[in-house]
Design a protein around this nucleic acid. Structure first.
Length: 855
RNA sequence: GCCCGCGUGGUGGAAUGGUAGACACAGGGGACUUAAAAUCCCUAGGCGCAUGCCGUGCCGGUUCGAGUCCGGCCGCGGGCACCA
């Protein structure tokens, strides 16, 4: 072999990756075709926010989707694999505020950059269907649906609280509130009520809950999280009669999931947002001060739960429903949510830790309602809160048995109360209606007009889209739409009189709640096209991060139902995602040094070598495995990886080693190893292409290994165990390399390896395929089928355990009868020695698996 | 605080309740080379001279048999309704 030949036989992905991408493009391999003769398959990865740079998490997400899409294409499906941009949202406005410019320019510029970074990955995406949610063609259709949903009674307005920054005079998102203060102004944030638009998702609580059972191919944990989020509960709603309450508040409605503890009640409590609290606030300075204090906590449930539990005695009392002489004080308490139940509760300190803490703090009585069935001490500092399924002994019960489970006692208590005219049993949900109003510019305008005579009037559909005006500035905080007179002022669509446009825009979750449907007909003049939606829906495989397990997925499930109700989706699409896969993050070590003041200074991976800074030799502190983030500088830029190693190496790396649902740690050693392996595969292929060995007795063994690999790799891909599929491909590579089989058999083996690798490393696969004389593109070759006859082994090795510990093994024919195996096992040397002529206590034979001898 | 998940060699991980550590990374040894790179081969959980013993975050339980199932902890991660 000459030096020139050696040079030619190197794996140089840059010489062919672009070539094969052009070949796919030329052959229109990935254009989704509505072909009624073929079964369709719709693969979708959660679309990205156009931040400007792709990161390894994207590479991992889209490579997984690509593996599925390419394998299904090879398996004969008509595949839809689209890509778009979740393009509205706060970062674009923040960029405009910080750096000047316009959110639109920033966003479209980022999209162009990210598309250019994604294309070299060689993803099998039908780019002809691409859109961004900030395209007027997209959000105009969203506005049309909003109008339809408004007409269908799915949308309404009500008051709701927001975070208000009193210095910047603007509404803040929860993430912009840090320790109760505005992120820019540092001012203490207030809760303020605004009239806002809501979707009636809570009307669908029961249905969204029940339908979870049908989502067989969703992760169990996601279904469980959604179930808990919807939060169905069975309880009693009843009214206390009040003593010394203001006029109009003669009754206080409360909801409880533990009516069986009614005889252990020691106080009632209402939310600071309860109408009674609001009434008292106006007349009582002490209440006003307390309620004002409560409103500083912020709007998130997390903040509320973590805040110190506090209350204020209103002086009002309520009568116990079963004893007119028994009066309970009414507190305003900062931990009661107005949105849940009736915004008022009764507290039973003995059997609820929060109530107990509250009672101890304010010197309220603690009455034990029940004790452990076997008896126990009265409650002291720890509430007695057994599982509802556990039987307990009732001391202050009033319905049902003396010893019964909490569940039974609750039902008995509800029945008793209903029979005695004290309230009624109700089923409640934790799920609240979906507030979509955002006091921001960069979002889909809510297409309604406020008219002094007609009230709130939807825009006429022929006037859609209601486009965002371009002439806006972000030099002062707040919503530029609010101070844009020529955009804001308009004519009422109904009476023509001067009117004002709604200046709130929609939550970006609305945008992402139907993009999957729009991909089925992305240029249609209506939100969807019935025939296309009918063919392509549902999404057969949806892939994205677990961080979307609740909100995005729940909103999408609701929105699909709302679209079906308004005629924009077929009924079969109300559960839009047949299968869901939630993938893990890409992590990396963090490299840190400290400055003179001891503050941490972070360093990029490319600036560090061998635990030291390349520039200065200073040792760095290594913090293991954390989610890649710009602020910690533990990021690896996919573009630089592709430049250094090619796209296939990046793709191969993110699929190997870690199971897809778990986090994967990016290491430069791993990336180099992936590159080396692909180089080896390429070299073995080129050696086979140049070799000429006659058929021989090793061909059969190689063929068997190939078919085993077909079976196992296919199983790995279909079961979303890409790391295992990769391991099997390593094994097959090793087998081919070591095999002394003839060239013909090796060519078949290598071509099959190319086909099995194509979903993961498509460029390399094409190159090998072409090298070995494969017909056409491997991307269009049918997926190989394993011959079942070649998958079974004639003999199996059975390990023998003695008392559960492995001591020996025997090799037996695959279908040897149990009795013969038993005899062989007992005759085995080690076993015979241990038994010493005695019969075993027990002999367990699991055919094809194991033998356990118990002595 | 509440809901959900995860925890296995030096590292990433594999294992329908049935041989713990497949496959790979890093390491050690060797071959080839004037040398290096590249490549190839061998080795490899810990302890012990060894029959062997110990090992899947910790404690307990079920089972002939537990990484896997159950109960209780510890640690880490995700979500908590205006981040996307």
């Amino acid at each position: 072999m000459t030096i020139r030949d050696q040079k030619m036989q190197r794996y140089e992905p840059h010489t062919f990756e672009a070539k094969w991408q052009a070949a796919w493009e030329e052959a229109q391999v990935f254009t989704a075709r509505h072909d009624p003769a073929r079964q369709k398959y719709y693969v979708l990865e959660m679309f990205p926010y156009p931040s400007g740079r792709i990161h390894m998490g994207h590479v991992r997400n889209y490579t997984m989707g690509d593996v599925v899409a390419r394998q299904k294409l090879a398996a004969g499906y008509s595949v839809l694999h689209p890509m778009g941009w979740d393009a509205f949202g706060m970062p674009a406005e923040n960029a405009a505020m910080e750096r000047g410019g316009h959110p639109k320019d920033w966003t479209y510029g980022n999209i162009a950059d990210m598309r250019a970074q994604m294309k070299p990955l060689g993803l099998s995406i039908d780019w002809s269907r691409e859109f961004a949610t900030c395209d007027p063609e997209y959000y105009g259709q969203q506005q049309a649906m909003f109008i339809d949903m408004l007409a269908a009674g799915l949308v309404y307005r009500k008051n709701a609280v927001v975070n208000w920054d009193p210095v910047d005079m603007t509404v803040l998102a929860n993430e912009q509130v840090i320790d109760g203060k505005g992120w820019r102004s540092g001012a203490v944030v207030e809760r303020r009520e605004l009239t806002q638009w809501f979707f009636r998702i809570s009307d669908y609580s029961a249905e969204l809950l029940d339908a979870l059972d049908g989502l067989k191919d969703w992760p169990e944990k996601v279904r469980l999280m959604q179930k808990n989020w919807i939060g169905q509960s069975r309880g009693l709603q009843f009214a206390f009669s009040t003593v010394d309450a203001p006029e109009g508040f003669e009754r206080l409605d409360v909801y409880t999931t533990r009516p069986d503890t009614l005889m252990g009640a020691s106080f009632a409590a209402i939310s600071p947002d309860h109408p009674l609290a609001k009434h008292l606030e106006r007349h009582d300075p002490e209440v006003a001060a307390f309620v004002a204090e409560c409103r500083k906590i912020g709007t998130s449930e997390e903040a509320l739960e973590k805040a110190e539990k506090r209350g204020l005695d209103t002086g009002i009392r309520v009568r116990h429903p079963f004893d007119n002489a028994w009066e309970l004080p009414v507190y305003i308490a900062n931990f009661i949510l107005m949105d849940y139940g009736t915004g008022a509760i009764f507290g039973c300190p003995a059997h609820d830790q929060r109530d107990l803490d509250f009672a101890r703090k304010y010197g309220l009585p603690v009455l034990d309602v029940f004790e452990p069935a076997e008896g126990g001490d009265p409650v002291a500092d720890e509430a007695f809160v057994p599982l509802k399924s556990e039987p307990v002994h009732y001391l202050r019960g009033f319905a049902g048995q003396e010893i019964q489970t909490g569940e039974a006692a609750v039902e008995a208590a509800i029945a008793f109360c209903e029979a005695n005219g004290v309230g009624h049993g109700v089923t409640n949900y934790r799920l609240r209606d979906w507030g979509i109003s955002r006091q921001r510019y960069w979002g889909c305008p809510i297409p309604v007009v406020h008219c002094d005579t007609c009230g709130v009037v939807p825009e006429r559909k022929e006037n859609l889209p209601v486009c965002l005006p371009d002439d806006v500035t972000f030099d002062i905080p707040g919503n530029p739409l609010d101070r844009h007179p020529t955009w804001r002022d308009c004519a009422c669509p109904k009476c023509g009189a001067p009117a004002r446009r709604e200046t709130d825009t929609m939550d970006t979750f609305v945008d992402s709640s139907w993009y999957y449907a729009r991909f089925t007909s992305p240029r249609a003049a209506t939100p969807t096209n019935a025939a296309e939606a009918d063919y392509w829906m549902n999404v057969d495989q949806y892939i994205g991060g677990v961080e979307h397990a609740i909100l995005h997925l729940l909103y999408s499930r609701f929105f699909a139902r709302a679209m079906a109700k308004t005629g924009h989706l077929p009924q079969k699409a109300i559960e839009p995602f047949n299968a869901l896969f939630t993938q893990g993050m890409v992590t990396h070590e963090i490299y840190m040094t400290r400055d003179e003041a001891g503050r941490p200074v972070y360093h990029l991976p490319e600036d560090v070598e061998g635990g030291k800074l390349k520039a200065t030799g200073e040792a760095v502190e290594i913090i293991p495995s954390a989610k890649m983030s710009k602020s910690k500088k533990n990021v690896v830029d996919p573009v630089s990886i592709i430049d250094a190693f090619g796209a296939d190496t990046a793709r191969w790396f993110v699929l190997s080693d870690s199971p897809p649902e778990r986090d994967v740690e990016w290491t430069s050693a791993g990336a180099e190893a992936a590159f080396r392996h692909l180089g080896r595969v390429w070299r073995i292929a080129s050696e086979i292409a140049a070799s000429d060995v006659a058929a021989n007795d090793q061909d059969a063994a190689l063929e068997k290994a190939v078919h085993k690999a077909i079976h196992e790799v296919t199983q790995g891909i279909e079961g979303f165990a890409f790391n295992k599929a990769v391991a099997k491909l390593y094994e097959l590579t090793n087998t081919i390399q070591k095999s002394g089989a003839g060239t013909a058999a090796k060519r078949v083996a290598m071509k099959t390896l190319a086909q099995l690798s194509a979903p993961m490393v498509p460029h390399l696969a094409e190159d090998i395929w072409a090298m070995l004389g494969g017909e056409g593109l491997v991307a269009q070759a049918p997926w190989p089928k394993a011959n079942p006859a070649l998958l079974v082994d004639d003999t199996v090795i059975l390990p023998i355990q003695i008392n559960g510990k492995r001591r020996a093994e025997i090799q037996v024919p695959k279908d040897m009868p149990r009795e013969e195996i038993e005899a062989l096992a007992l005759a085995e040397e080690t076993v015979a020695k241990v038994l010493a002529g005695q019969a075993p206590k027990k002999l367990i034979v699991v055919p094809g698996r194991i033998i356990n001898v118990v002595v």
